[in-house]
Design a protein around this nucleic acid. Structure first.
Lengths: 190, 190
DNA sequence: TAATTTGCCTAAATGCTTTAGGCAAATACT
DNA sequence: AGTATTTGCCTAAAGCATTTAGGCAAATTA
């Protein structure tokens, strides 16, 4: 009967933890209510609906990722920076698979604008300052890096590379080596 | 009253169409029943449950993709083959976004074994025959290609590259150019 | 201390999932 | 053809998630 002390903040945080434990698509208003030992309807004062909850978890994940990226990039350049940011994504996905899945949620334009999406784009661009790429090649490269990071991480997480030699650790470092080489020798438009 | 002529085959096919129209996660046994103008329970004779339905849609998508890949690769090698297979994935995802999302479904080991997953791996390896890569570099390269294809396609589909110049068409061809160069100059282990 | 706001509640409607059991149409057998 | 069996879709019902409306009591403010 006493008050548990709910708030949008706490719900989103707990929702993120729940996502990491049982998967983002298992994050439900009901499950969250159970976790707080509170009736379902009580959550609807703090969160508009199920969709709103998920969107907020996505925004949290994007912000956390961007924060980690900032830290990782500080004082680094070139391949050092490339590896650091790549590892941020990969490590985050492995530590927080549910949050990482949330970060992939397709956001409506309003939420997207309020998200840390811009910070992510800027971080990737910052890496490319260590390489000699003029526009529009820089944008092409930003998109390639985004594709590789996201693609590799989500395939690895989904078990796409499982139980096959060589181990994924080795592949990851070799892919980063290869990207570094590629960025230093970006082919001119033919 | 009369019989509509349901079958697992037809349900899965209709489910795939539904996925393309409203999104894979909106594919529900109920929605499918509505589409056939049949009571929900009737579907349970043809499909074990909701999960079974989704898994079957995923297997269909993987098989269709592999079929397209086979056709595209026939008679091609080197960069030609690389571009052809890459376009298969990208085009399929744009024509059938719901099926493509389904193909990303995490399958249980049994379903995975019965899936066309192996064909996909073989196709990518076939491309690499046009380049000079020995193991374990070949596996690293297979994983890189998988990451780029999947990563790019899903980011583009999710609107990750939207409303920004240059257009994604241009980026796609430049990324394939870059991959071709990279595969021809794969950096040795250092 | 009284007034107001806030936090969680009960109640109820709607919709998806799944199981159990039934009847009639289609198919196979004599 | 007539009978037996299988198959296809049905009704019924229980369980759980989502969402809204309205209420009471604790916390906050005046």
């Amino acid at each position: 009967m006493g008050r548990v002390g709910l708030s949008t903040e706490r719900l989103v945080r707990a929702g993120a933890e729940l996502a990491d434990e049982v998967g983002f698509d298992q994050v439900t208003v009901s499950a969250l209510a159970r976790r707080f030992d509170v009736k379902v309807a009580s959550l609807y004062s703090h969160v508009r609906n199920s969709d709103d909850l998920r969107t907020r978890i996505a925004l949290l994940a994007l912000a956390e990722l961007a924060d980690r990226g900032d830290v990782a990039l500080a004082g680094r350049a070139g391949k050092d920076a490339l590896t650091a940011l790549a590892d941020v994504y990969r490590d985050y996905a492995r530590e927080h698979p549910g949050r990482y899945a949330a970060a992939q949620l397709r956001l409506d334009p309003e939420a997207a604008a309020a998200s840390a999406g811009g910070r992510h784009a800027r971080m990737t661009r910052a890496i490319l300052r260590g390489y000699d790429l003029a526009e529009p090649d820089q944008t092409h490269a930003v998109r390639l890096l985004g594709s590789v990071f996201h693609g590799y991480v989500s395939l690895e997480l989904g078990g796409g590379f499982s139980h096959s030699a060589p181990d994924t650790e080795e592949t990851w470092t070799r892919i980063l080596d290869a990207l570094d080489v590629l960025l230093r020798n970006w082919p001119p438009e033919r």
